[in-house]
Amino acid sequence: MSELRYEAPKTLAEAVALLSGAKGRARVLAGGTDLLIQMRTGRIQPELLVDIKAVPELGEIVAGNGGYRIGAAVTGMQLIEHADFAKRWPGVVDGVRLIGSLQVKGRATVGGNLCNASPAADSVPALIAAGAVARIVGPHGAREAAVETVVVGPGKTSLAVGEIVTSLLLPPRPLRSGDAYLRFTPRSEMDIAVVGAGVNLTLDAQGICTQARVALGAVASRALLVPAAAAALIGTKVDAAALARLAAAARDACSPIDDKRGSREFRLRTAGVMVCRAAGIALERARRNDG
């Protein structure tokens, strides 16, 4: 029986050194809400757990340059309870709110929700729509990557051995902009997204959409940024015709599977519905966010 080791480094450099030294048999332990289940079911059998919660900077929520830096080990509940962040990025908070129960969100981290690389992770489409960037540190230094490039497939990320996501950077929130995330699940809570849709849009003074980002979850092997769906909104008042084009573009971007949580057909149909409803909420928020 191989011994499972546990380390709780106090600095990022130590954490990176531990991860790099373990030849891929190490796992980052943040909230642990996915990791512990995967260990329990035997899906993964790591030799080393690197608990990153003792690294101070990974637990911070910092406002700066009009935007936000969220440490990768910030828990869902910490983010939900951060009043100013929730005011600026209500759609991201929508997504975080849907990560499991209150109990799970008391542990689960935003960084973990991303790096677990589930196509159905609730915060990820919201972060992609928000234009969030992941800051990554590894044995060869630091880099930044758009959130939509971090996950490459179910359970797979673009992180190299020894690299960890240290924080997520949210850009400044423009005036007259708003975001929203909605998902569809059979139960009202405690469920996994069958379809998730994040929309972030900005209006001009006349109510015309000038910028938009649309992201979808659970309809492909990873969360998708869908530029064609955003294009359906830009230049419109987000009226019925625009929403119809949005729904069509969203459905076109999907490549869902049939599985225990929903059929391909159902996911395609529901993706269009969810993205329109999310756009409606984002629109309302944008209108209210007039300075």
Partner: peptide, 19 residues
């Protein structure tokens, strides 16, 4: 298995003892 951990509601089945 709900317990409070440093004042935060958690599932104790998703926390390692060592944590």
């Amino acid at each position: 298995c709900s317990v409070m951990l440093d004042g935060r509601l958690v599932c104790s089945c998703l926390v390692l003892g060592v944590e």
